[in-house]
Amino acid sequence: MDDERLWGFEQSLWIEGPDNYEEKVDDQVLMVLPHPPYVYAGREAKEAVKSTPVWDRAELDQRQVSRPQEGLIVIAYRVRAEKEGHNGYEAHCTSVIRRLEHEVWRVVQHQQTPPLAASAEG
């Protein structure tokens, strides 16, 4: 998967709905999300992201890509997401995407770390 397609794939997980998660997130996925119980696996992880907003816009910057072996891609980035009527969302994220077969890719790991609140930094 080239970089342009890779970043389009990842961005779609922020701006498209639950059917997209079902298609692109592996049934054995592991996730760390910024709300209890924080560590999720499999179906529980997919359900947890289905309860989050489908964002109108998601900007992915500070992009880093690693391809440690054939069929495995590791990415890291910052997301800034917006949706009318909701507070914006920002987080630093990682995802691991693996190829199942030609042109078929699935997210097998995803993590989100929102920035620390200013009051917590002091």
Rank of each mutant, 00 (worst) to 15 (best):
Y38P: 00
E101T: 13
P115E: 06
L33C: 07
R98T: 11
V29C: 07
V107Y: 03
G85S: 03
V74W: 06
W105S: 11
A117F: 09
Y40P: 01
G42R: 04
P53L: 11
Q11T: 13
T113D: 06
T94E: 05
A48N: 04
E84T: 14
E70C: 01
R57Y: 12
M31T: 01
S12E: 10
V104W: 01
N20E: 14
E4R: 13
R80S: 12
V49G: 02
P114F: 02
D27Y: 03
V74I: 15
A41Q: 13
W105L: 08
C93D: 08
R106N: 05
L13G: 10
Q62W: 01
P53C: 09
A118G: 04
L100Q: 08
E22L: 14
K83I: 07
V74A: 14
D26W: 04
E90T: 15
L6C: 07
A76Q: 14
A76K: 12
S95N: 09
N87A: 11
G17M: 05
E101S: 15
G71A: 10
Y89P: 09
G8H: 11
V29P: 02
H35N: 08
P36M: 04
N20L: 03
K24T: 10
H92P: 00
I73A: 10
D19K: 13
I97C: 03
A91N: 12
V32D: 01
Q109K: 05
E10H: 05
Q109T: 09
P36T: 03
E121T: 10
H110R: 15
E10G: 02
L6F: 06
H86P: 00
N20R: 14
T94P: 02
L33D: 04
E22N: 12
A91D: 07
E121Y: 07
V107L: 14
G71M: 09
A81E: 01
S12H: 00
L116G: 08
A120T: 05
S95W: 02
K83Q: 09
S12W: 02
R43L: 08
Y38H: 14
D26S: 15
V104R: 15
Q69D: 06
Q28F: 01
E10A: 12
V39E: 01
W14D: 02
E4I: 06
D27G: 13
H35C: 00
E82S: 13
R99C: 12
V74M: 14
P68G: 09
Q109I: 03
L72E: 13
A120Y: 06
